[in-house]
Design a binder for these strands. Structure first.
Lengths: 215, 215
DNA sequence: GCGATAAATGAACGATCGATAATATTTGGG
DNA sequence: CCCAAATATTATCGATCGTTCATTTATCGC
């Protein structure tokens, strides 16, 4: 999530500094993890001294949660909008593609979410992401199980566990793509964010969804 | 990787202690990450004081690399054996299933590998895992691209980028499963290591591979 | 069982961590 | 333009990090 594009006079100095801090912190947290990132690094990246951070955030933990919150909100809203406006059947199965487009605009969010998800269960960060996943997964479950009979009338009903495993697979497939830039450069030259490769990934996502529906 | 099952007199005291240290370190590194784990924690878990660690490992970094090495070697050998003994075509497409069985015996290795893969590019740990992935991926690529015409004579040849994306997807699908226990408990009750769920996952893996082959 | 060697310990080091207090500077509304 | 409020800085804190050293204790081949 990069800084808002508003005109520099619409924001007060404090707001601009807070935005810069969030930008730097998001990048560093995603690349180095929570414990691996120091407030000194963040302050230096934002062009201020360390104690200045405390004029905008209560502490390291609060800053981390603010980063997650700012990254999670647009994603949640956009996905909610997509889900709500899904009138035709195929709109539901497009969910991974939509999520890919959203992650494409903020590629480091994938790493941020995965870390928060693997992190301390009691932490606010973990609960934030877990809560988001909850609604997302519930919707994914409803999609798969609701569509299946319509699309493939002769398909047998799948048990809840299989549905869950499928939804989780789609999530891992979608986010994992953005965590695999290094692996990709081993196998082929190029950038995973290249439109051609994004198109290839979306094609794969659709094929996998279809493979899940037709059992 | 749990301690060797050898009789307690076959190992010297030092070897036994080193093994305990590796066990504890592997668990903590996988759950909390490299920076998030302190040598004090590891020492306490192994039942010794902190300086005692230095009788067995040169330092934190060396201990971390030893953990990765001990976890990576059996996996690499087992996969190499599977690949070498693959006479029939389907042996190749079974590779994700074989990897699932291996990871099932040491579920925390998935987290370990992902962390090392995302971590510092210069680090020895990253290079260790990257090197392993390289051979694994090369083999996966060769499988997919070599098998395709045989299995589906009417399928068009896929470009290298698509192959790479497919191989990466299979890797993310296979390892991501073992990182998703929390997500699974949101959607359904149960343990992802339950044989029934493992069977469901393997069924999914095979379906996805098939979906990749028949373009 | 003796003795060399391996292993474990207590004490302490410098470095860095997140955080606080006191002070200086800048901002921006009246 | 002024002055209260917002923002930034300097100095410093205690805690914890990884690591080292000198010493004690345990191991195990002979």
């Amino acid at each position: 999530m990069t800084a808002e594009g508003e005109s520099p006079r619409r924001q007060s100095k404090g707001e601009r500094t807070a935005g810069r801090i969030l930008d730097v912190a998001e990048d560093l947290f995603a690349r180095q993890g929570y414990e691996g990132t120091s407030l000194r690094q963040i302050a230096r990246g934002a062009g201020i001294k360390e104690p200045g951070l405390y004029n905008h955030f209560a502490g390291k933990q609060a800053l981390y949660e603010a980063v997650l919150h700012r990254a999670l909100n647009p994603m949640a809203e956009a996905m909610a909008g997509q889900i709500e406006s899904a009138s035709r059947l195929r709109d539901y199965t497009d969910l991974p593609s939509v999520m890919t487009d959203l992650l494409l605009r903020h590629p480091q969010m994938a790493a941020l979410f995965q870390q928060a998800l693997q992190g301390d269960r009691e932490s606010v960060g973990n609960q934030l992401v877990t809560q988001w996943l909850e609604t997302l997964f519930q919707q994914g479950m409803r999609s798969l199980e609701g569509l299946e009979p319509a699309v493939t009338p002769n398909a047998q009903a799948q048990d809840r566990e299989t549905l869950a495993i499928n939804v989780i697979a789609m999530f891992n497939l979608t986010t994992g793509y953005f965590l695999s830039q290094r692996a990709f450069s081993i196998l082929a030259q190029g950038d995973l964010q290249d439109p051609d490769n994004i198109a290839r990934q979306k094609r794969l996502l659709h094929r996998v969804v279809r493979a899940m529906l037709v059992s």
